[in-house]
Amino acid sequence: MPNDDKQKFIDFNQQVIDEFRANHGRVGGPFEGGRLLLLTTTGARTGTPHTTPVGYLPDGADRVLVIASAGGAPKHPHWYGNLLAHPQVTVEDGVFTYQARAEVLEGEEREQAWARAVEAEPGWAAYQKKTERVIPVVALYNSTQGGPGHINASSPGEAIKVVHDAFRRELALIRKEMAAGNGTLGAQLRVNCLTFCQGLHNHHTGEDTMMFPFLTDRHPEAAPVLKRLSEEHEEIAGLVAELRRTLAGEHADPAAARAEVERLTLDLEAHLTYEEEKLIPLLDATA
């Protein structure tokens, strides 16, 4: 790559990184509306950290997938060579920053993940046609002990808002993907839905077992609010369970799945809005 082009690429990446960090994962330009994370690897030769914006695929509660396409270039991207040499990486998803272990998928596991990716976004297949190398698929396993990682917020109130907004963005993406599915329910879309369901379950479990008891102890006057929120968690858990049932089986009904996602969206948005209204002042006052 000529020096001028290389510098333009570096400057563009830095602009995306700065925007991503300033807006809790939201960016414009070519990445707008997509799933993006910041991947920090250790240089294979230099030993210095390098941060790169990378698109990702949800893949369950404990890992995400990234694809070393380099736009179909003949060589693997630098970040891929770095993580081969140093598999411990840092991931920023806009809400949390956490340590992860990188593992290159092989054999059938790689083929299944690649097939899901191509089904969801044909552009990956176009990249593969441009190069003779087999484009790697890499799993990033969260290795942070005791939780999802460091939350990127300056106060407890801001923390709950950025987590809620991340759920809102992911649910909006799922709804968009369902609308674009032309009556089908692809394998990656199912994984996206199930990953969202698991993340929401984990979040509400953490609130029920840690945050709500903490607030009850310090703000007993808030007991009716916390009771209502706990009851809403149970109602939302029922909607999540119904969505899971709708997604189960080889011949899941796309229309039924869309209907369940819409029901979940309406109830969850009302719940998140009420929780922010009532809890952010309490959390920031306690802090």
Rank of each mutant, 00 (worst) to 15 (best):
Met1Lys: 10
Pro2Glu: 10
Asp4Gln: 13
Asp5Gln: 14
Asp5Gly: 08
Lys6Val: 13
Gln7Asp: 12
Gln7Gly: 07
Asp11Pro: 11
Phe12Gly: 07
Gln14Glu: 15
Ile17Thr: 09
Asp18Met: 10
Asp18Pro: 06
Glu19Tyr: 07
His24Ser: 14
Phe31His: 11
Leu37Asp: 00
Thr42Gly: 04
Gly43Pro: 06
Ala44Ile: 02
Thr46Tyr: 05
Thr48Gly: 01
Pro49Ala: 02
Thr52Met: 08
Val54Pro: 03
Asp59Pro: 00
Asp59Cys: 09
Ala61His: 10
Leu65Val: 09
Ala70Arg: 13
Gly71Lys: 02
Gly72Leu: 12
Pro77Thr: 11
His78Cys: 06
Trp79Lys: 01
Ala85Lys: 10
His86Asn: 15
Val91Met: 03
Phe96Cys: 06
Tyr98Leu: 09
Val104Ser: 09
Val104Cys: 05
Leu105Pro: 10
Leu105Tyr: 01
Arg110Pro: 03
Glu111Phe: 03
Ala115Gln: 14
Ala117Tyr: 09
Val118Asn: 00
Glu121Asp: 13
Glu121Asn: 11
Gln128Asp: 07
Lys129His: 05
Thr131His: 02
Thr131Glu: 04
Thr131Asn: 04
Ala139Ser: 10
Tyr141Ile: 05
Asn142Thr: 02
Ser143Trp: 01
Gly147Val: 12
Ala153Ser: 08
Glu158Tyr: 07
Lys161Cys: 05
Asp165Tyr: 11
Asp165Ser: 06
Ala166Ile: 00
Arg169Cys: 04
Arg169Gly: 03
Ala172Arg: 14
Leu173Asn: 01
Ile174Asn: 09
Lys176Trp: 00
Met178Lys: 04
Gly183Pro: 08
Ala187Tyr: 01
Gln188Tyr: 03
Gln188Leu: 05
Gln188Ser: 02
Asn192Leu: 03
Gly199Gln: 12
His201Pro: 00
Asn202His: 08
Thr205Gln: 13
Asp208Gln: 13
Pro213Ser: 05
Thr216Pro: 02
Arg218Thr: 09
Glu221Met: 09
Val225Pro: 02
Leu226Met: 07
Glu231Val: 03
Glu231Pro: 00
His233Asn: 08
His233Ala: 06
Gly238Lys: 08
Val240Gln: 10
Ala241Arg: 12
Arg244Asp: 14
Arg244Ser: 07
Glu250Ile: 04
Pro254Tyr: 05
Pro254Gln: 03
Ala256Ser: 08
Leu266Tyr: 01
Glu269Lys: 14
Leu272Pro: 01
Lys278Cys: 15
Ile280Gln: 14
Thr286Leu: 15
